[in-house]
């Protein structure tokens, strides 16, 4: 099995943002620029998450998806605020290949069955945001970790798989934006209990964390944001250039780098390969027609 390495791009309106644990959102630039860079450097898929998911933002999301899917020929998963069959249909028409669902399916789990019947299981990714409780149990959350659901994350994962989810995207809300590594226990317990692929999410601060998520966390795919975004902004300032709300000052202050070691997709994949974990080699060094 080849591990998939999946850049995750959080969107707010037309901008790529990065949530920093307990600090809120930073604007980093235009998602299309980052997406194009990741496509060219060996991303296996891309995830777009609309982290505000307002009704107003929907058109801008569809716009970005449409522009991206015309240029980028790898799978694109889109999530954030998708509530109905019609919402899903719209993002697929714009060029997404899969959708990630959280709030809507927590409210009404049967929606997983309906959506996977309508669009095929492989199109439906259930996103589980989980937080560790003081007693060591894990609870599922919605709204980027803001709302508790009362659901046990492990029981919910099994249920979602039974109802027809094609994949699970499991995010640790405690680790997300910290750069301190994936929540290995969370990832492993879910990955070992469900028969469908699990994408580990939240906490990657260096390529070694990615290796850990696969080797110890048993993840089938790994998703990451900061390590890739910061590398792009730092090493390709012209391509990432952004005149809007200005990431420049923030990044110049280098606070973002405090716990995050920027790396390219190639570096992430080389570390996976060095650890004996198979993945698709990056485009570097190969020539395509």
């Amino acid at each position: 099995m080849n591990v998939r390495v999946i850049p995750r791009l959080d969107l707010k309106g037309p901008n790529l943002v990065k949530g920093v644990h307990l600090e809120g959102l930073r604007v980093l630039g235009k998602p299309e620029h980052f997406a194009a860079y990741y496509y060219a450097t060996g991303a296996d898929e891309l995830v777009y998450m609309d982290v505000v998911a307002s009704l107003y933002g929907r058109n801008s999301l569809l716009d970005i998806v449409e522009r991206t899917s015309r240029e980028i020929f790898i799978p694109l998963t889109v999530g954030g605020g998708l509530r109905t069959i019609e919402d899903i249909r719209q993002v697929l028409r714009a060029g997404a290949d899969k959708v990630a669902l959280n709030t809507a399916v927590v409210r009404r789990p049967e929606f997983i069955r309906e959506a996977s019947r309508r669009f095929g299981s492989s199109t439906i990714v259930v996103s589980i945001e989980a937080g560790r409780r003081p007693d060591g149990s894990y609870e599922a959350y919605t709204d980027n970790g803001r709302e508790r659901t009362g659901l046990n994350a492990f029981a919910w994962a099994l249920r979602a798989a039974e109802l027809g989810a094609g994949e699970l995207m499991v995010t640790s809300i405690d680790r997300e934006g910290t750069g301190s590594g994936y929540d290995i226990e969370l990832t492993r317990r879910i990955a070992e209990s469900v028969p469908i692929p699990v994408i580990a999410c939240g906490g990657a601060g260096e390529p070694g964390h990615v290796v850990q998520a696969v080797r110890e966390g048993k993840a089938d795919a790994v998703s990451m944001a900061s390590i890739l975004h910061y590398e792009f902004v730092a090493n390709h300032p012209r391509e990432a250039a952004f005149e809007g709300e200005g990431n420049v000052e923030y990044l110049r202050a280098r606070r973002a780098f405090s716990r995050v070691k920027p790396a390219t997709l190639g570096e992430v994949k080389r570390q996976l390969a060095a650890a004996g974990l198979a993945c698709r080699p990056t485009a570097e060094g190969t020539v395509h027609a």
Binding site: R4, D44, S121, G166, I196, P197, R280
Partner: peptide, 15 residues
């Protein structure tokens, strides 16, 4: 299977 471990289905992979 891989190393005695059953692999996930669907097969979602670059191969």
């Amino acid at each position: 299977q891989e190393e005695g471990r059953p692999l996930k289905i669907p097969h979602v992979c670059w191969s």
